[in-house]
């Protein structure tokens, strides 16, 4: 009976007042506009004529619609499709593995009866503070693991994030009532069974959150492709789109080099602003739907009532 009530949403007598509710609504509507309008602007710029942008600046309503930017990008459609495929694979496999590995690590350090939990918490937290720099890290992957040009080089480095592990740990500590664990133990359940059958289902919201973040990490990553991949077959979509932005950043921070290149006879050119915006759109691509997908797991643990009886 209780469970049914809980699932049917908040108690109608236990909500904010209608006035407050409409104030909240108005606030979020305005704020949402602030978030979505810049994105609309990017789309509009990507559909604008380049000369208009250079002479008049950005505009929400393009003077004339111009698809050159997308035509330019889609010339390379085979590579784009392939890279979407690479990124999709990396994102799905990576997120699954990392979710399992991270929650397996987070559970023991969330258990107050585990004497070594402080040490292992510190062991993982320490990695957030110190790092040995790019070069030694690169050597581990390239020389020890020999992962150059290997798709696992895009997956492995992002498997464990100390930040996420500590979030999961805190959540476990907070929301899994120790009474539940004890009653399970009394029933003779092993730690692994408790973990998979009780703790995990109870933690859906945080697992969904971390899965979402992990998905974004994999999707948005371009750096791993930059350092490990030279082969077009394994390029991620983000790198494919981002590398021109990298070229631009290089030019912007190396004005001496630009002058030198042009003096030496080289031509420095990079795509114009409409193409850059189109690239941003292609790079974001399907991932904007990730949030609604994970959102449906933002539900209360259904078994709380069941375990408690």
């Amino acid at each position: 009976m209780e469970a049914v009530k809980r699932r049917s949403g908040p108690n109608p007598f236990n909500g904010v007042s209608p006035v407050a509710n409409s104030l909240i609504n108005i606030f979020f509507t305005i704020y949402s506009l602030c978030c979505i309008l810049p994105l609309v602007l990017i789309v509009m710029v990507s559909l604008s004529n380049e000369q208009d942008i250079l002479t008049m600046g950005y505009s929400f309503i393009p003077n004339r619609i111009d698809l050159t930017a997308y035509e330019f990008l889609l010339e390379d459609w085979r590579q784009i499709l392939r890279s979407y495929g690479v990124t999709f694979f990396v994102t799905v496999v990576g997120t699954l593995i990392s979710l399992i590995v991270m929650s397996l690590y987070a559970y023991p350090i969330s258990r107050t009866d585990f004497p070594q939990r402080k040490f292992f918490t510190f062991f993982i937290f320490f990695t957030m503070l110190f790092n040995g720099g790019l070069v030694p890290w690169y050597l581990v992957y390239v020389q020890m693991l020999e992962l150059r040009n290997n798709i696992w080089a895009l997956i492995l480095p992002l498997i464990v994030s100390a930040f996420f592990v500590l979030i999961i740990r805190t959540f476990f500590q907070q929301t899994i009532p120790s009474a539940v664990l004890e009653s399970a133990k009394i029933d003779g359940a092993g730690e692994l069974r408790i973990f998979f059958q009780i703790v995990m289902p109870l933690s859906l919201p945080v697992l969904a959150t971390v899965a979402l973040f992990s998905t974004l990490n994999y999707w948005n990553d371009w750096f791993l492709s930059l350092v490990f991949i030279t082969d077009d077959k394994t390029l991620s979509i983000q790198y494919l789109m981002y590398k021109t932005l990298l070229n631009i950043q290089f030019m912007a921070s190396n004005s001496n080099a630009v002058a030198a290149i042009s003096a030496a006879g080289g031509v420095v050119s990079y795509p114009n602003e409409t193409v850059r915006m189109a690239m941003a759109i292609v790079g974001i691509g399907p991932i904007v739907f990730a949030y609604p997908f994970f959102q449906k797991y933002f539900v209360k643990g259904l078994t709380v009532g069941a375990v408690k009886g």
Partner: peptide, 19 residues
Amino acid sequence: IAPIDWGPWEDKLNLMIAS
């Protein structure tokens, strides 16, 4: 032949030399 784009050039060259 292994050309490297301008943007990643510096990072990649450094790693190439370092490794």
